[in-house]
Simulated scan of single mutants.
Amino acid sequence: MNRQFDVAIVGGGLVGLATACALSHYDLTIAIVDSKIEQYQHLVADNLGVRASAINGASQRYFAQIGIWDQLYASNRVQEFIEIGVWEKNGQAHLSAHASDYGYPNLGYIIENHVMCHYLYQYAKACPNIAIYTHEAVASVFEQDNALLTLADNSVIQAKLIVGADGAHSWIRKQEKISLIERDYLHHALITTVETEYPHQLCARQIFYPNGIVAFLPLWQSNKSCLVWSTKPENAEMLKSMQESVFADELFRLTGDKVGRCQLVNPRMIFPLRARFAKQFIKHRLVLIGDAAHTIHPLAGQGVNLGFQDSALLVSTIKQLQDARQDIGLVANLKAFQFKRRKDTLIMLTAMRTIQDMFNGDNLLKKALRTVGMNAIDNCLPLKKQLIKYAMHI
């Protein structure tokens, strides 16, 4: 027996859940399909997650619009940061910014991914117009008037629009043979949680060195940070296999007295880094959002914010189409969404590639350009303010 929905979302991670919760405010029926979604059922107190994200102003406002921000903030697992510090190891390039310099209360928030997913999941479960399916999709058919998803338990979901929010290795994207433009960043990201000798003081820090980038994202405990260490694949594997004390020594060698000595709190995880850009964000009765549509280098912490921007614009587009009694699954009605999101994503992809290429290696000319460029930005408050506003999406 088929069950009919307006929108079926494949993928119940951050972006998929946010999209379902935002759509639930309207006269729509929504399905979420994700076999692993129940992992977000419980939140263990004081159990720090390995992965955390920098949430900008636009994403914070989206959470408020959905209706989870107050509860999320009250969890005491949200850490605002008021300062950023960027510098080059063994170089003169540096850049810093403090929220008070621009009259802002903060520059963003660092939140563990599983904390955000927990509150979104609890919200979705309580919505009468959201149905959650915990069997994975195994087949898809796109007809003129509907799309159909067959699940592993042989049940069938029918929807006017399928939203692919199932990550970088998207099943639905592959199923529909949507190809990618890809570029290997030649980096892997080693991610873990560390306890630092010195309190983070609400500062997000990033250190560039010839073989990579080390970033500290301040967490809700004053001496705990999410560590994102992007480096060459062979270096990342070596760092993961090191004894903890040797790893701590290597980290201290790069960061010096900025955070003091570090101790590991969580296991070290490695993720290959690739730029991905789907050649189509839309097809007949299908939209790709989040990592299913694009992935970027984490050096500016904008990946998840790009996904939330996809989600917010898609929700707005669906609402407008519904109000106008137009078909939400037709390509012609989704072209404006695709144009806007492809443009914004390409700008960010280009910026990340330029920054990574500029800081990759120890070429003397590059080093001189880095020093002149970063220091010029650091000393030009109007330009720096524009960059901060762009990153915060305000």
Rank of each mutant, 00 (worst) to 15 (best):
L313I: 13
Q263T: 15
G16C: 02
A275W: 08
Q144P: 04
I162Y: 08
R173A: 14
E38R: 10
F142D: 07
R285V: 14
F281S: 04
H393D: 12
H114M: 00
H118I: 00
Q4L: 15
H169W: 10
P128Y: 06
H188E: 11
L227M: 11
L120H: 01
S155M: 08
I172G: 04
S316L: 10
S140D: 13
I270A: 05
V44K: 05
F277R: 04
D145Y: 10
E143W: 10
V10S: 08
A275K: 09
Q263G: 11
A332Q: 12
S140Q: 13
A74N: 03
T350I: 13
G329K: 04
N305E: 05
W229M: 02
V246E: 13
L251P: 04
F5L: 10
T134V: 15
K319D: 11
E112M: 00
F281L: 14
L227V: 02
G373A: 14
G301L: 02
I318T: 12
G16H: 02
K283A: 15
L365A: 15
S140E: 14
S225R: 02
V331I: 15
N360I: 10
P298H: 08
S170L: 09
H200K: 03
A22W: 11
L369W: 08
M348N: 12
R253Y: 14
K89G: 05
I162W: 11
Q71L: 13
K125V: 12
H188F: 15
K366L: 11
E83V: 04
Q338P: 05
A20L: 11
D249G: 06
Q263Y: 11
S230R: 03
